[in-house]
Amino acid sequence: MSPETVLSVTGLSKSFRAVKAVRDVSFSIPRGKTFGLVGESGSGKSTTARLVLRLVEPTAGSISFRGKDLAGLSSGDLRAERRHMQMIFQDPFGSLNPRMSVRDTLVEPQVVHGIGTPAEQLKTAERLLAEVSMPRAALDRYPHEFSGGQRQRIAIARALATNPEMIVADEPVSALDVSVQAQVLNLMRDLQDRHGTTMLFISHDLRVVQFMCDEIGVMYLGEIVEQGPRDRIYGAPAHPYTQALLASAPGKAGGQRARLKGEIPSAHAVPSGCAFRTRCPHAFERCTVEKPAMRAIGGGQKAACHLLDAAAAA
C-alpha cells in the first residue's frame, strides 16, 4: 500500500444469515480524494460504509486505514482510531442528540478523544461553527431550533471536531431541498480543500456523485460492477448497468431513454453467474453460468462484464 493511500478495502463481504449484503468489495482512496459509491437501494452501499467504520463486523475481507488493519484492532484501539474517521449521515434529525446543545455536540467528540483543555475545546467549537458558516449564537441552541440544512452543517462541524483524516458521508444531502443541498455540497468541498480530508461518499444521486467524487464505484446487489475515475464512468460507462443507470436519470436524453426491465432481485436469491443478468438487455448464456471477473479497460477504469471479454477478443 502506497503511503498516500488512506483507506484500502480488500475482498470485503458481509452476510446477514442467508442475505449476502456485500460481496467481495475492494477499493482504495488516496489522501485528500473522494471515492463515491453509487447504487440503488439494496445495492449494499450503506452496508459498505458501515463495514468501513466497523459499525458492523465484516464476514470476510480486510480494511486497512492509515496503514493499520482495522479488523484486527481491539475495541479500545478501534475507539482511538475512530478519532481519525468520522461520519455524516443522511438524517440530520436522527443523528444529532436532541437534548444536547450545539456547544455540547461539538465539544463532546473532543472530550471523548481527549483533545485539548476545556477552554481549547470551546474555542475549537467556535471555530468549527464559523467554518460551517453558522453564527456563534447557535452554540447555546438545540437541534430542533434549526432547519434541515443548518442541522447538516452542525453534523459536518461535529465530524470535523476531531480533525479526522477521513469522513464517511452516507447520503448527506438526500434529505435536503435542492437550494440547500447546493449550499451543503459546496461547504463539504470547501472544507475538504481546506483540510485535505479524504472522503468516502455514498449516494443514490448520480448528479451529486458526479459533482463530489474523484473516483466512483457503481454497486449492484452487493458488488462493485464498475469502478473508475469520474470522467470515465460518466463519459464512457462500460458496464450495462452503469449505462442504464445513467440513461434512467431524469433530464438525460429526453424521451428516448433506455429502460431497464424488472427490479433488483432480492439479496436472498442472488442470480447465478452475473447478478445483473436478469435485467441486462445484453445477457447471453455465459452470464447464467459464469460470474464475470473485474477486467481493467484502461484509464484506471474496470468493469465486470462478459461483453468486455468479447470486445477484447475481437
Partner: peptide
C-alpha cells in the same frame, strides 16, 4: 442552477442563499 448538472465540470454549485 443549484442542481449539479450532468456533464458539467463546475467545481462549485450556485446555491440560493438562506432558506425558504
Amino acid at each position: 442552477d443549484a442542481v449539479p448538472a450532468h456533464d458539467d465540470g463546475r467545481t462549485r454549485l450556485t446555491p440560493i442563499l438562506g432558506t425558504v
